[in-house]
């Protein structure tokens, strides 16, 4: 059994404390915004200059002055604010954003992350990824699958692709497990029901230890 992207997003959203300021990366991390628990309020930041980002708006009713980092038409919630790029990244670099949630090609047991560039003919594009991983108080990575299409682990001992940041990731959420990155290495805090610890280890590129209260993850 594996978790769906929606299951992962829901688990991530449940782990965010009320009152947090959160930046969601383009792609799967955006899904987290759809699962904010009703008993909590957190404020979503978008790098292009808004706090209080609300849901995407239906196709055809976009206001193209009001977009997110993925250039989708979105909305702004009561209490929100607009600001320019230097202020937006001052919030990030200055440690005012509580959690940055991003996707990744590779995450390493030492907290390194590679998520911006695969060497090749296309021009290298970084956007705000390096600022977010270096500046946010906590960096969480979401992986829609624990391994790549060809079965290679995405959670590895050392990254092989160009790094986005060094020693910055605190936690990884995948379709198989929730793993904390600690000074002592990878600690599994929850894993999908029915999966053997040896099976999870076999799909992970660095040694795992298991928290004493390691929990079960259930698919919806």
């Amino acid at each position: 059994m594996k978790l769906s992207a929606a299951d992962i997003a829901q688990r991530v959203a449940n782990d965010i404390a009320g009152g947090s300021y959160v930046n969601l990366g383009i792609g799967m991390p955006m899904l987290v915004g759809d699962y904010i628990p009703v008993d909590r309020e957190f404020t979503l930041h978008t790098e292009n200059g808004m706090l209080g980002m609300g849901p995407a708006v239906p196709e055809g009713s976009e206001d193209w002055d009001l977009i997110n980092a993925g250039k989708q038409g979105v909305s702004i919630l009561p209490g929100g604010a607009f600001f320019h790029h230097a202020d937006s990244f001052g919030m990030i670099r200055g440690g005012h954003i509580d959690i940055s949630i991003l996707g990744a090609y590779e995450v390493a047991a030492n907290g390194d992350i590679a998520n911006w560039h695969i060497p090749g003919p296309r021009p290298p594009a970084v956007g705000g990824a390096m600022d977010l991983v270096a500046g946010a108080k906590q960096v969480w990575v979401v992986l829609s699958s624990h391994v790549s299409k060809n079965g290679a682990p995405k959670v590895v001992d050392r990254c092989t692709l160009p790094l986005t940041g060094v020693g910055c990731v605190k936690r990884v959420y995948s379709d198989l497990a929730v793993i904390d990155i600690t000074p002592e290495g990878l600690v599994v805090v929850a894993m999908v029901e029915g999966l053997g610890r040896d099976e999870l280890q076999a799909q992970t590129g660095a040694p795992l230890t298991f928290a004493a209260d390691c929990g079960n993850l259930k698919a919806a």
Binding site: H85, S88, F89, G90, P121, P123, P124, V126, G128, D131
Partner: peptide
């Protein structure tokens, strides 16, 4: 860019703003 006819300096977004 692929033809080597234009130079590119890629800069992190917050670093560029700052």
């Amino acid at each position: 860019y692929a033809a080597g006819e234009i130079e590119l300096e890629t800069v992190p977004q917050g670093t560029m703003a700052e």
